[in-house]
Structure formats: C-alpha cells, structure tokens
Design a protein around this nucleic acid. Structure first.
Lengths: 111, 111
DNA sequence: TCAATAGTGAAGTAGTTACTTCAGTATTTA
DNA sequence: TAAATACTGAAGTAACTACTTCACTATTGA
C-alpha cells in the first residue's frame, strides 16, 4: 500500500514545499500543536492548516485532537517508504556501475 | 550545495510526478535516449522533453547530446541528497522514541 | 459567564504545472 | 540529395497550488 504510486505522488509532493519540510523538520524533534508549527512560519494560521492537511493526506504526519488542541506527529513508516523508493533506484544504478567497472577491468586484463 | 532548500524543492517536486518517477526508474536500469524514455509513456515527445528538463534542473538527471541523440543518465549524488534529508528526519524521530522508551522503562523499574 | 485561545472552512486570486499542437532544426541513412 | 529520425521551442489552455481574508465554532480559564 505504501508502494502505491499515488501515495508516493502525495508524499513527494508534500515534501516539495519548503514550509512543509520545515514543519516535518520541527516534528522530527517531537510532537507539536498547529500553533507551534505555525509559530516560525511567515504565513497565516489558515495557510499552515492547509499545509498540514497536505502532510496528513500524504500519510507523512498523523494528527489527533484533544480538546481544542490538535497534536501532530511524524509517521516514520511513510517517511521510510519515500526513502526506500529513492534508495532502491540509486542502488540499482550504482550496482550497474559496479558491474560495468568489473567488466571493464576484466576486459583490460584480457588484452 | 546539495543541502540548499531550493535544490531540495526542485528534487522533491521532480519526484512528485509519476511520469518523472517512471523516467528515473527507467534510467536506474541504465542510460537512455529521449525517445527511449518516451516510449512507455502515453504522452507527446514534447511533454517528455519538458519532464526531462524538470529532472535535469533538479540535478537528478544529467544529459549529454551526441549527434542528434540526447543520452540521459541518473546523478546518484542528487538522489542521495534527497534520501539523506528524509533519513535524517526519520532517524531524529526514531531516536526520540527510543529515548522515550528507555525513560518509561526506567521509571517503571523505579516503582 | 465572558473573554481569550485554538483551530476550521469557504471563497477569491495570482502564479504554476502538465499537458497539447504545430512548426522548426540538426543529423543520419538510403 | 532527399527522406527519415531525433529532438527543440513557442504558444495556448485547463487544472492545480499556495496563499489571503473573513466569518465561524469549539474549548478553556479567570
């Protein structure tokens, strides 16, 4: 389900915005309320809530409301899914380069 | 330079589109020409070139033109930068959870 | 109970994105 | 040298994004 292309779209889209990355950065240091997330950002609370909704829809952030305070926290499983997608492609490429290097080294030996 | 927020914007933005991820996927298996990249995609060549320009501007893909053929290949350094950003945030969160677990285990022992 | 706090939701807007088509330019190949 | 190949670039368009403001609803604390 986390390999679902649509889910990956949402995750990378979510991470493409600097304000949202700043929110994830803040949350990586521990849970926070909406106002705490908004505090360092130069935009309206409404805008922050909209960014938060993007993050939540992507699965990268989970929130929970208690009383009038909404507490937000990171969902490491989703982060790991995005990380893995990149990692797998990079490794495929690097393994290819290694094999190519081996091949070239071998052919050189044969001359 | 690869930690530059603007560069991360471009990379995550680039990865947010399924067509572009498919192109990266293809390139992870080896270099390809523009037409080879376009072949499995249900869109015009022009659209593919536009996607390719986005990938190139993000630094994820490097291209080189020889004769009339433009050959594209992955830039693993850029992939690694995106990967690292996610990884660092995820690890920060997980280390926090570990410390919290230790703390709770200790407090329990003290009862 | 009344004011302050914390967030929600809708509507509007400027700018961006993901395409399209069409017309063009080099470079090869027959 | 003529036709086919491999792109390239500009212009147009529909949908989407990142905000804004303003009006609103719960919840909490004095």
């Amino acid at each position: 389900m986390l390999h679902d292309p649509a889910q990956l779209d949402l995750m990378f889209q979510a991470l493409a915005d600097p304000a949202r990355r700043q929110m994830v950065e803040r949350l990586s240091r521990g849970p926070a309320s909406v106002s705490q997330l908004a505090e360092p950002l130069a935009m309206s609370l409404s805008a922050v809530v909209q960014h938060l909704n993007v993050l939540e829809a992507s699965g990268l952030v989970r929130t929970e409301k208690l009383g009038r305070v909404r507490t937000c926290r990171i969902e490491p499983k989703a982060l790991r899914a995005a990380e893995r997608w990149i990692n797998e492609r990079r490794l495929a490429w690097e393994r290819r380069l290694d094999r190519l290097g081996d091949f070239l080294a071998e052919t050189k030996d044969e001359t």
